[in-house]
Amino acid sequence: MAPKSRVPEKSSVSTSSAPKAKKAGSADAQQIVQDVWSKYVNKTPQRVKLLDSFMVFLIVVGVLQFVYCLIVGNFPFNAFLSGFSATVGQFVLTASLRIQTNPENKAEFESISHERAFADFVFGSLILHFFCINFIN
């Protein structure tokens, strides 16, 4: 479904990593991945990298919990749910913070400064933690 009227692309990507091959080949895929990685390491500001590392950490913790559940079973189901949802919810909130502090999305979030975004993030996270701890009793 092709989008009709979208916000015009505001990609800050430089054209240095030009799309090379028209045919999809594993060498191209690997090249693209490498390009992406090097661009990421060079271009992204430190705060965003902090965010991303936190998100990766959350994914790891979440996957660990899920695997544990698959192996051992989900006996106190509310414990599993609250543990897993804590990671999922925190991940989602952090992703939202990342979106909101991304300068490319300035037009979308006119009314929200970065500080406001961070305050919202803290507010949401506190509520999330409260519910998780209450649920696990």
Binding site: V61, Q65, Y68, F75, A79, G83, F84, Q90
Partner: peptide, 13 residues
Amino acid sequence: GAWVWIGGIWVTV
């Protein structure tokens, strides 16, 4: 059995 998940929450926090 729940210690892992309790640990998960506290690790997250």
